[in-house]
Structures are given as C-alpha cells and as structure tokens.
Design a binder for these strands. Structure first.
Lengths: 352, 352
DNA sequence: GCGAGCCTGGCAAGCGCTTGCCGGGCGCAC
DNA sequence: GTGCGCCCGGCAAGCGCTTGCCAGGCTCGC
C-alpha cells in the first residue's frame, strides 16, 4: 500500500497529491493562514487519503519549538506523584501533546539538569512536580534556570511549590493542616505528635503552619490548645516510621499523631504496630493526601483529600493555556475524610 | 555570556570556534568516524567551552531516527506499573535517553494508537508494559503494528506478555502460581478461592496455570489436592473486591483466597473485612507482585515478590542492547514472601 | 473606469545536524 | 624514485517542515 518507501508520507507527498504547493499544504494543516475552501478540502482529503502524519522533529526544528511537554517528578512510585502524573498525562493526551517524563529520584541535581535539558530541547512546556527543597542555593539555581526557560519562550508550571518563575497550582495546604488540627482537638487530643515533611518545603511548612495554628490556639468552641511535638520525616514511608518512633520515645504520653502526608502516616502506622500501640485506641493517626490505599489500611486512615489528579491536569492546563502576563497561583480545595484511624472506641471523646 | 542570541549554540558555532568544518565537528562529537587527535581535542574543548548541547530534533531529522524511547503503561497509578516505569526510567536515564510516556488508561485502542505514533515519530525503541488483552483481534492489530515498527528499524520490548514481535521480559509467572499453591497446600487449605486476572492475559493465565497445577495435584510430600473456585477480577483493586465477594458467596466454606496480583488482594481484603471474615484466622489471603504497600497492610500480605523495577530495567536494556537475530525472552526469578495474612493462629496447620 | 489595497497561493530560504563523496597528503612497496 | 592506497578533512546535499516575501487577481472607492 502507498509508496511506503522508507518513511511515512511527507508533506510534499500530500501537496503533490492535492496539486498544491508544499507551503499551502502546510498552511492548511497548521491553520496558520486562511486558505481558500476549494484548496483546503483538497488538501485535507489528500492528507487523510495518504494517512499523512507530520514529522514532529521536522516541525520542531523549523519552528524551533517542540510540541511536547516535559514532566518532572521526584519519584513515580510514590502514589502522590503517580496520581499527579496521571492527571498531567490525561490532560496532555487530550491536548494532543506527548509528554517526556523524568524521575529525579528526589535528587535536586537531576532536577536542575532536566530543566536545563528541557530548555536546550526547547520544549514548549515544563511541569515540575518535584516537591522542592530546603536548599536555598539549589532553589535559586533552579529558579534561575526556570526563568531562563520562560524567557526563551517556554511555559512552566509548578505543582505544590513556589519559585521565582512559573505558574503554580497547589492544594490548600494551610487548610489541610487546620482541618487535621481541628479534628484532633475536637476528638479531645491534647498531646499530639506531628510527623512533618522536610523543612523548607512549602508543602510541609504550610501544612505544619495550619496545623500548629489550630493546635496552639484551640478551637473557637472553647476547646483548649494542645501540647505539640514535631519531627521531620522526609515525606517518605520510612522517614515517617523513623520520625514516629522518635516521637513516641520523646513523648510517650501523646494520644495522636498527625503525619503531613499519607506515606509517612503509613510508616507511622508500622512504627505504632511495632511498638504495640493500638490505633486508634491508644494513639489516633491521620495523614494528608488521601492516596488510594489510605482507605484499605487497617484501620482505614483518616486523612485530608487532596485532588492529586486535578493538580496534574491543572498544571498542564496552565502551561497550555493562553499566556497571561501575571504569574498565576491556583489553590485547590481540600476536604477532611474521617475514617477509623481516628475514630476508634478508645479515643477520648468530647461534645462537639 | 556567549553569543546567546536565540538558541543555545549550534554545531556550527563549535566548528567555527575550533576552526574546523561542521562535518568534522559532527564526526568527533558523534564518534562516527575517526578524527585526528589534534582536531579532536580542539573540537572537544570548544564544545565544552561553549557549553554546546546538540539539538535533538535536528539530529533526529537528519538521522531519521529519534533517540528517545517510548514507554507505554496501562495505568501509572497502579503500583506494579509505576515500579516498572521506575526501572525503565532509571535505565533510560543512565543510557542518556529521554523517555516519552503514555498512559493508556487500560484502553487497547490507545495502545495501538500510541504504537502507531511511535512508529511515525520513528522513536528508536518502544517498551510496552501494558498487560495485554484477551481480545484476539486487538492483539493481532497491535502485533502487526509492532512488527511494522520493528521492520522500520525500531526496537521493541514487551513486559510480561508475548506478541508476534518484540523481545520479552517477564517474571516467572508459572512459578509464582506454584509457590502460592504449594504454600497454601502446606498450610492445610483444601478449599481455595482464586481471584484471577482477565482471561487471555499471559500474566494471569500463567499464574493461574501454575497455581492450579499444584492445587489440583497435591504436593509431592503427599499433601492432598484442593477444591478450587476461580473468579476473574481485572487485575484491579475493585475487581478483586468484587471477585472475592462472589467467591465467598459461591463457596462459603473456602479457607483461603489467592489473588493473582496484590492489587486484587487488597480488594479481596476489603471484601473479607466487610463480610466480617477475619484474615488469616477465618480465611488466609495472598497475592502476587509484592508491591511496596503489601507489607503495610494489616495483616501484612503474603505474596510472591516480582522484581518489578528490574523488569523495567531489563526491558530498556533489551531495546538498547545490541541487536540480535532471534527474539529474546527473559524470565526473571520470583520468590515467596510469607507474612501474616496466611500465618494467623487459626489457620489449619499440618506437618510440613 | 482606473488605481489602491487586500486576499491568497507559491517560491525559496532556512531550522541544526548527518553523511556520501571527493580530494589532498602521506606512507608504503616494488 | 614513482605509483598505489589509505587516512582524514571538507563540501554540499539533504532530512521534512515553516514562514517571510512576492506577485497575481480580485474587490472596492472615487
């Protein structure tokens, strides 16, 4: 079938077949300039007759702008990131874009390198779903690189973090913290341990700020403030397990542990189990994100639902959407999901 | 710094700076032909002085071969696929390749389309980690497309499935099934429910075959065969939950459930919990894959460890490795991991 | 009725890199 | 000493597509 020499057919084939010039064919297919109806239909017909597929490299070269979007995550196997990636992939696919993905393995160096490459490759858009870093210097270098990327005409979006350049889309982290704090206070907890993320990450800092604000000041209903102990856990399961162990040693009297993400809550659960502290009877436990497996843990994990897929979709939406002059910052709503890990019989209860 | 007009510097810049022709510069950088030492060093020096980055599109266009590899998964949020993706990404990164990823959302149509696009784009390699399909027609079309892809010079590898074209790397699925069967028999289970994957998927069929073979014939040690009930569960958590519910209704007397992957085991666990059947006391439960969360479930899940990351790495290794004439089929070893979900006090025990 | 201006098609010059081919310079064998 | 062949550098022709510019024909205004 078809000439089918070495390549799928080229624009020239289409143009010839339709009896027009290559330029005209290009214009109708790209819609870059109005073309008369007669020709347009002829070209379109020829294109589909020949099953024409434009060569993306030629196009990228000519336009010096690649039509794919680069997605950077810290760890694909982390449910949070894979959900975000899922959303980004869906949106990109719907927009007909291909996405090149990189996994930094939580290395900042890799992140910088990837952004640099994205710039060199002149991809049209960049979505950074890495969780950021406390390292000022690294952040500045990354920011500078991102700025350069934008100045060279690319679009960038950050998921759940701020930088000197790029639009931002994030969950309402402060609210997430407040919700957890309010929930724990209302349940009567007065000594709570917090498994935080790495210092300096907006995601962790904001969640922590919201949580502490509520915990430290009590509820409007008159509920008294609580004593709080904080340990950082790197946002990973193992980090959470370690941090929870320390907390338990440090403050044996605590009746609740709030992990700032679900992965760490899973780790904390393991620590509690290992130490023989029953959840929620002896210690209540909660997380943030509502990763899919949260509901299948035993006890099912109380958490704050973060629209992870939507974060990914929006991020892609931003970088593909029309260019606006001000930097955007979208904040997505979150919602408390109460399950068994904070609701057991032994939990101290108070009138609401 | 540097001319820095619109683009990062080009090969021509390097050549000029080094005082050689573009062709020579190209050859030393690509190593496509020996070049005298003097020139070589000059060129290399200029390249690094100018921080030269080759334009991948120009290269792809000229070579009519893209240096990136396409990775296709059915669902990035499924831990199995994200682990595989992780391995593939690592390997690709080490080999200096970029990877463009597509998530088919478990739609066969998308899969076909993606392969087609990979061909049009002339990517150098394709890694298909989709789990296949029972739909003969779809498989044939996909196989044909893959064949065309290979004939056009691309390399393809399949993870955990066979097709008319492409190398294959997979876990020892039959062994995985046998291990589970042997384990359950040894524990004394004589009525077992099996939550299988979709019919027609090699991964499911092989696991099932291994499991049934052992279950139906007993152990060499003289352990008697078991009565088996099978229900398919689509390899998803929800499918597993539904299938397990059916099994329990169908054969209330079963003392063990073997899910053919961990996701379905998680679903089955939920079903058991909902029905008030304690695990492992009333019903033992086990899965296959050993996804990271398996050990954090309560009870921790007995399963068969599948080297998921390694599957991804190998797949990339195959497509990037030297071209050999025969189709390869790598089978990776698996290992039984016994945890609490089959080890509770109430489990019927027999001498080993 | 005629010129100004607009609309639309085509020409051709690239985008940055690779590669087939040519040719100059050198070493070697006879 | 001369001829042959080899090694390595350069020339230039693309890879497939986009786009600035030009020109022909049209419409419209005066």
């Amino acid at each position: 079938m078809s000439p089918a020499g070495k390549h799928a057919c080229t624009l020239l084939d289409v143009a010839t077949h339709a009896g027009v010039s290559e330029a005209t064919a290009s214009r109708v297919l790209a819609g870059s300039r109005p073309v008369g109806d007669a020709l347009r239909t002829r070209v379109l017909a020829s294109a589909s007759a020949l099953a024409y597929t434009p060569n993306p490299h030629a196009r990228a070269l000519a336009r010096s702008r690649d039509a794919s979007i680069a997605l950077v995550v810290h760890d694909v196997t982390d449910p949070y990131f894979s959900e975000v990636a899922r959303g980004a992939l869906e949106a990109a696919c719907e927009a007909g874009r291909t996405v090149v993905i990189s996994d930094t393995g939580r290395h900042l160096g890799r992140e910088l390198e990837v952004v640099r490459r994205a710039r060199a490759q002149r991809v049209e858009a960049l979505v950074l779903a890495g969780s950021g870093s406390a390292d000022r210097g690294a952040c500045e270098r990354l920011g500078a690189e991102l700025l350069a990327f934008e100045r060279s005409g690319g679009r960038a979006a950050l998921v759940g973090r701020h930088l000197v350049a790029g639009d931002c889309v994030r969950p309402d982290n402060v609210l997430a913290g407040r919700l957890l704090g309010g929930h724990l206070l209302a349940l009567g907890h007065r000594v709570v341990g917090v498994v935080a993320g790495p210092d300096g990450l907006t995601a962790s800092d904001d969640r922590l700020a919201g949580l502490l604000a509520v915990l430290a000041s009590g509820l409007p209903s008159g509920t008294a403030p609580a004593e709080v102990h904080v340990r950082a856990g790197a946002f990973t399961r193992d980090g959470g397990e370690a941090a929870a162990s320390e907390l338990l040693a440090l403050a044996p009297g605590l009746t609740a542990i709030a992990a700032l993400n679900d992965q760490m809550a899973i780790g904390a659960l393991a620590a509690l189990r290992r130490l023989g502290r029953r959840v929620p009877d002896a210690v209540a436990l909660c997380g943030i994100d509502d990763i899919p497996v949260a509901r299948d843990l035993a006890p099912a994990l109380t958490t704050v639902r973060v629209p992870m897929v939507e974060l990914g979709r929006r991020a892609v939406g931003l970088v593909l959407g029309e260019k606006v002059h001000t930097r955007r910052d979208e904040c997505l709503d979150v919602e408390l999901v109460v399950r068994q890990s904070t609701a057991g019989a032994g939990t101290v209860k108070e009138a609401r």
